[in-house]
Every structure is written in C-alpha cells, then in structure tokens.
Simulated assay, not measured.
Amino acid sequence: MYYEIRQMPMTKMGEINLLVMCSEEVFGYVVGKVGLIANSLRTLLNIRAQLDQNKVNIKFEVL
C-alpha cells in the first residue's frame, strides 16, 4: 500500500491545492462508497485552513 500527498502551486492567493495520490488497492479505501477517510481529511484540513484564513482544495488520484 502506497500513498503520497503533494502541495501544488497556488492558483489564487490564500488557496492551497493538495494532490493525494494512492496506489490502486488503497484508493478504494480512501475514497470508497461513503468516502469516510477522504471526508475526514477534508474536514481536518478545512479546520486548519480556516484558522489560517485559507481555502484548501484536495484532489485524489490513483498512482
């Protein structure tokens, strides 16, 4: 199982773009039917981003 998170270049001021890349066997667990892990990750990052007055965009891809 393999995953990687990269911060991509900003497109707008105060906007953070993250790319979450997972191996195929992990991707199903991360995104899944309900997407519990993906939604939890979004929630945590958005809480932190609000404290810093930023916005976070997260994109999930298979390696």
Score class of each variant (00 low, 15 high):
residue 6 R to V: 02
residue 41 L to E: 01
residue 58 I to S: 02
residue 25 E to K: 11
residue 19 L to C: 07
residue 6 R to K: 14
residue 49 A to V: 09
residue 9 P to V: 00
residue 15 E to D: 14
residue 55 K to Y: 10
residue 58 I to F: 07
residue 56 V to Y: 02
residue 31 V to Q: 03
residue 56 V to N: 00
residue 22 C to D: 03
residue 38 A to H: 01
residue 20 V to K: 09
residue 50 Q to E: 14
residue 54 N to A: 05
residue 36 L to A: 15
residue 49 A to F: 04
residue 17 N to H: 13
residue 60 F to L: 00
residue 46 N to S: 10
residue 10 M to Q: 15
residue 57 N to A: 02
residue 7 Q to F: 06
residue 62 V to Q: 15
residue 6 R to E: 14
residue 31 V to A: 05
residue 47 I to W: 04
residue 40 S to Q: 10
residue 36 L to V: 15
residue 16 I to A: 04
residue 53 Q to Y: 08
residue 29 Y to L: 11
residue 3 Y to W: 12
residue 61 E to K: 12
residue 59 K to E: 11
residue 58 I to Q: 02
residue 30 V to G: 00
residue 16 I to G: 01
residue 1 M to R: 12
residue 25 E to W: 04
residue 10 M to C: 13
residue 8 M to D: 12
residue 11 T to N: 13
residue 50 Q to M: 13
residue 32 G to D: 02
residue 7 Q to R: 08
residue 50 Q to I: 12
residue 19 L to E: 09
residue 63 L to I: 12
residue 60 F to M: 03
residue 61 E to H: 06
residue 57 N to K: 10
residue 44 L to T: 07
residue 28 G to E: 03
residue 11 T to A: 06
residue 47 I to K: 07
residue 55 K to P: 04
residue 41 L to M: 14
residue 35 G to H: 00
residue 57 N to P: 06
residue 1 M to Y: 13
residue 36 L to M: 15
residue 14 G to P: 06
residue 53 Q to F: 11
residue 32 G to P: 01
residue 51 L to Q: 15
residue 59 K to D: 05
residue 29 Y to R: 13
residue 31 V to C: 07
residue 49 A to E: 03
residue 32 G to K: 00
residue 62 V to A: 14
residue 23 S to C: 04
residue 3 Y to P: 05
residue 58 I to C: 02
residue 21 M to D: 06
